[in-house]
Simulated assay, not measured.
Amino acid sequence: MGACVSSASSSKPDRSVGGRGGSSAVKRSSTAVRVVHMDGRVQEFRQSVQANNIVSQNPGHFLCSSESMSIGTCVPHVPGDEELQPGQIYFLLPLSQSDKPLSLPDLCSLAIKASSGIGRHSVDLSSSNSKLFLR
């Protein structure tokens, strides 16, 4: 269980999320904003994007930054007018989870979804034609 609590903000962030620090696919996406959905799907945005652009397309959900999550506290919402930061991972969570303190099993589940989704596939929305990258 200890591996579930590892942070994606280490000096080698791509190694701790997905375990593919040396691959060119991960290096290419390190400048992308990643949004992990509850079904494990990962969207990558290579252009600037505000939180409200994501949330407006996903009613009943909110965005949170992977770096602001801690066990035993409620997950803070990313403000709608905030510009999402390249290289960061965000989670799109149901509003029903916004008042619930984050547990270790919850955090582990989210880490597994992020790791699996980033390792397998992601959606690149850098152009008007969305492409599915299989990794």
Rank of each mutant, 00 (worst) to 15 (best):
M1L: 12
V5P: 00
V5W: 00
S6R: 11
S6D: 11
S7Q: 04
A8G: 05
A8R: 03
S9N: 13
S11D: 12
S11F: 11
K12M: 06
D14S: 14
G19C: 14
G22D: 07
A25K: 11
A25G: 07
A25W: 05
V26Q: 12
V26S: 15
R28H: 13
S30T: 07
T31N: 12
A32W: 06
A32H: 08
A32G: 00
V35P: 04
V36I: 03
V36W: 02
M38D: 07
G40L: 09
E44F: 10
F45E: 02
Q47T: 07
S48P: 14
N52W: 15
N52D: 12
V55N: 01
V55I: 10
V55W: 05
N58A: 15
N58K: 03
N58G: 06
P59N: 05
C64W: 04
C64L: 10
C64N: 04
S65P: 08
E67M: 09
G72A: 07
V75Q: 08
H77Y: 08
G80D: 02
E82W: 12
E83H: 13
L84C: 05
Q85C: 11
P86F: 05
G87Q: 02
G87W: 01
Q88A: 04
I89P: 00
I89Q: 01
L93F: 06
L95S: 12
S96W: 08
D99W: 11
K100E: 10
P101S: 07
P105L: 13
L110V: 01
A111S: 09
I112L: 14
I112P: 00
K113G: 04
A114Y: 02
S116G: 09
G119T: 01
H121I: 02
S122K: 03
S122W: 11
D124P: 07
L125R: 02
L125C: 02
S128L: 13
N129K: 13
N129D: 06
N129C: 06
S130Y: 03
S130D: 08
K131Q: 10
F133N: 02
R135I: 08
R135H: 15
R135A: 14
